[in-house]
Design a binder for these strands. Structure first.
Length: 432
RNA sequence: GCGGCUAUAGUUCAGCGGCAGAACGCCUGACUGUGGCUCAGGAUGUCGUGGGUUCGAUCCCCACUAGCCGCCCCA
């Protein structure tokens, strides 16, 4: 019988790596709080039609990457229902916005989420079937200012701040506008027409893309094709005046705030709901998956799934990729394993009960304490203590009788007698 | 879903058609209470899983599974 393993594309996250995950999440929460975002937690599965209508039937995500099953009826009166593990979280957030009539508040809703998403893709580095995203959405009725380009710029400025505060170096913000859905359809046809006579001079992939999905030609990385791609029509030339004005306002605000960005005419994103502003923050060193995060405006999404007019803008950060990037950066640095403040070494099993009592006392005042076992010989206690804690506290007959504990600080090698009443304060002082 | 590479000790990896290896890590080492550095000794294991070829397979062949890389696409 084969041993059970985590299924393909899923994985266990173990210490000490989980400490990094928690750190990233804590920084994100702190940054979001400063921008006055609140947390939303939506279900991990939804009615399949939410994604079909929201993300788009023809997208790769919906057409071939979803985990979908039929949740069978359990009573005569109940109908079976097609359910899907969420492949992204924006649709769920907008569904919740509609369901709870958040638009009726008249206020701009600023919501963030942290959680797992599911797509059945071939796993690679930085790509998993259960992966984690940190995302946020700004959505509301137009009267609340949800259409303002200031919201776009603020989101981008917040993301730049977040990456900076996480210590991510070398990121690039790629920015584009895809206009209205009508603009995008016109552009698609313009590209197709422009490619038809020249596609045969391009790489094999592009020849195929020119027919199946002209927008993807823009992503081609073959050097010989670049001059050809540069001469293709740009979507910016086909945008309606309002979209042009919107985009200009976004870039003007970014310039004023000093957020660096790169105008990328080729940035087209794969989800149907994007309108106007689209963006990616990319980072080298992630291989083919160079996008740390992506997002954009989705002015028609709410209406597409049966809600009121509720323009919005949001993003999703690939948490797994953020972790990979930070781990790669930290390769050059020494990362010390987490250390407890003290290791209590009871001498003999008769001391165990007293040791727990002492540990409780220290832990209650906030010290991190590792508790040894009285069956260990002192030598073994020292070995264990040296690996897990800054100090060892010896608790034997003498110490119990006298109330004076023996403490040795590993960083200095000095051994001290400390009255039990002073122990917590002694341990709390950073050793010099 | 397609193509390429890979799978050996806890970890990183050598290796060979004929007894399974290194480094690091781990365990032990006088003493009724002293770690690190060094020294001595020790254990590592279904050689990914299942078939096949062979007197004999960890090694060669096939399938499967998983990982990595690329494609597709995306976070």
């Amino acid at each position: 019988m084969s041993t059970l393993k985590a299924v393909r594309g899923t994985r266990d996250l173990l210490p000490p790596e989980t400490a990094l995950w928690n750190h990233i999440e804590a920084v994100a929460r702190a940054v979001f709080a400063r921008y006055n975002f609140g947390e939303i937690r939506t279900p991990i599965f939804e009615d399949t039609s939410l994604f079909a209508r929201g993300v788009g039937e023809e997208t790769d995500i919906v057409s071939k990457e979803m985990y979908t099953w039929e949740d069978r009826a359990r009573a005569q009166s109940e109908k079976s229902q097609s359910l899907t593990l969420r492949p992204e979280n924006t649709a769920g957030v907008v569904r919740a916005y509609i369901e709870h009539k958040l638009g009726e508040t008249g206020q701009l809703q600023k919501l963030y989420y942290i959680g797992p998403q599911f797509r059945r893709e071939r796993p690679q580095k930085g790509r998993y079937r259960q992966f984690f995203q940190i995302g946020a959405e700004v959505i509301g009725p137009p009267s609340a200012g949800s259409e303002s380009p200031l919201r776009d710029a603020e989101i981008l400025e917040m993301l730049a701040t977040l990456l900076d505060e996480l210590g991510i170096t070398g990121w690039t913000l790629q920015l584009n506008s895809v206009g209205s859905s009508a603009d995008r359809a016109r552009y698609n046809e313009a590209l197709r027409a422009a490619l038809e006579p020249i596609a045969h001079t391009m790489c094999a992939d592009c020849q195929r893309r020119a027919v199946t999905n002209p927008l993807r030609v823009l992503d081609c990385k073959v050097p010989e094709d670049q001059p050809i791609i540069e001469k293709l029509p740009r979507i910016v030339d086909l945008l309606d005046p309002a979209s042009v004005e919107h985009f200009a306002a976004v870039t003007a605000a970014l310039d004023a705030a000093g957020v660096p960005y790169t105008r990328n005419h080729r940035l087209v994103r794969g989800l149907d709901y994007y309108t106007r502003t689209t963006f990616e923050f990319t980072h080298g060193g992630l291989g083919a998956q160079n996008a740390l995060l992506g997002g954009g405006r989705y002015d028609g999404l709410s209406e597409a799934i049966g809600g009121p007019k509720a323009p919005g803008i949001g993003f999703a950060i690939g948490l797994d990729r953020l972790v990979l990037t930070l781990q790669a950066q930290e390769l050059n640095q020494e990362s010390a394993p987490p250390q407890a403040d003290a290791y209590i070494a009871p001498l003999g099993e008769a001391m165990n009960a007293a040791a727990l009592s002492l540990a409780r006392e220290l832990r209650r005042v906030g010290l991190a304490v590792e508790l040894g076992d009285g069956s260990f010989r002192l030598k073994k206690s020292f070995e264990a203590a040296d690996k897990t804690a800054r100090c060892i506290v010896i608790l034997g007959e003498d110490e119990l009788q006298s109330g004076i504990l023996t403490v040795k600080d590993f960083s200095t090698g000095t051994q001290t007698k400390v009255p039990r009443a002073d122990l917590a304060a002694f341990l709390a002082e950073p050793s010099k």
